[in-house]
């Protein structure tokens, strides 16, 4: 498979997942903000933006939140920007992705809101954004050949999911955010599953355990890590010449083992730091995968034959 195409598929997976998770995160926060009377709006918003590694907004409000994470095309973290980037990548890989999948991405892009909208419409937009991601995943699962391209798409998606879930989990550790475990669980779409798993009983530790360790829940860190490792091993086996990819495998494996075999109370005590480490690992793995599989063209210029 062409390196350029593999790279596009990897990033399509990431961006679509990012749009989905950002929509969930925003939705949870908007809900919590309405109910929470103890936290100032500005603090809650600042915390959320800090979680997403955004620090250029002064005294953020509700509106800013929607703009920066929602509809502003010029903000790299917004849902609209994520879908635009996904569509750009899909356009480059158009001849290899199934027609249906391309059309679903293209339609989403055409329907993206072109300007700002009021917060009353926010939920409609966020629901729509989540549905489009779900549609994408469904079509991809049903139509894509399970070749390298599929593995790269899934790898991108899994890494992004690990990254975003770690941010959601970290949000529970915020002292002033007003976000608590139930809302984090809702944000991950796992509240009911959690209640069923723990038979209605819930405490912070169990909630953290569920989101971090329960590999049966598809949005947990463990599930995402396992999926990433699986995809990576598939592409490494198919392309043995990608020598550095083993490093990425080790990185992911170490992280998984660390989470799996650490004591939960230690993880909880140091939650913010642990989750930052997860995000760092994701960034490192992305870097390694890029250099070993998407080998960009050598930057050097050509020279006339015979002078070499």
């Amino acid at each position: 498979m062409l390196s350029r195409i593999a790279e596009s598929l990897f990033w399509i997976g990431r961006y679509v997942e990012r749009a989905d998770d950002t929509a969930r995160l925003l939705q949870t926060h908007l809900r919590v903000l309405v109910e929470d009377t103890t936290t100032a709006e500005v603090d809650a918003c600042r915390n959320l933006l800090a979680l997403m590694s955004i620090d250029h907004v002064e005294d953020p409000t509700h509106e800013d939140l929607l703009r920066v994470l929602g509809y502003d095309r010029s903000e790299p973290s917004s849902i609209v920007a994520a879908w635009s980037a996904a569509r750009d990548n899909a356009r480059r890989a158009r001849e290899v992705i199934p027609m249906d999948l391309w059309e679903s991405i293209n339609t989403t892009w055409h329907q993206l809101p072109s300007g700002r909208f009021r917060s009353t419409r926010a939920h409609t937009f966020l629901d729509w954004a989540r549905e489009r991601s779900a549609l994408f995943s469904g079509i991809a699962r049903n139509t894509m050949v399970r070749d390298d391209g599929w593995q790269f798409l899934l790898l991108g998606r899994s890494l992004e999911q690990v990254d975003m879930t770690s941010r959601m989990v970290a949000s529970a550790a915020l002292t002033t955010g007003g976000t608590q475990w139930p809302s984090v669980l809702r944000g991950c779409g796992g509240h009911d599953a959690f209640l069923r798993t723990y038979r209605g009983f819930h405490a912070d530790q169990e909630a953290a355990e569920f989101l971090i360790l329960d590999a049966r829940f598809p949005r947990s860190l463990m599930h995402g890590l396992t999926a990433s490792i699986h995809c990576l091993s598939m592409v490494v086996n198919a392309n043995p010449s990608a020598s550095q990819a083993g490093e990425a495998m080790r990185d992911l494996g170490r992280l998984r083992a660390h989470l799996e075999y650490s004591r939960m109370d230690e993880l909880l005590a140091n939650l913010e730091h642990e989750m930052t480490a997860v995000q760092d690992t994701c960034a490192r793995v992305t870097q390694t995968v890029s250099t070993s599989f998407f080998a960009a063209e050598d930057p050097r210029a050509w020279i006339t034959e015979g002078t070499r």
């Binding site: 390196s3 350029r4 593999a6 001849e95 390298d148 790269f152 392309n239 043995p240 599989f293 080998a295």
Partner: peptide, 23 residues
């Protein structure tokens, strides 16, 4: 067939190659 851009191709010794994930 593959759709390639110029940067996906490379000429070596009078032959043309494309850059893939497998080399």
């Amino acid at each position: 067939v593959e759709l390639v851009e110029g940067r996906d191709l490379e000429c070596r010794r009078g032959r043309v190659f494309m850059r893939t994930t497998a080399g």
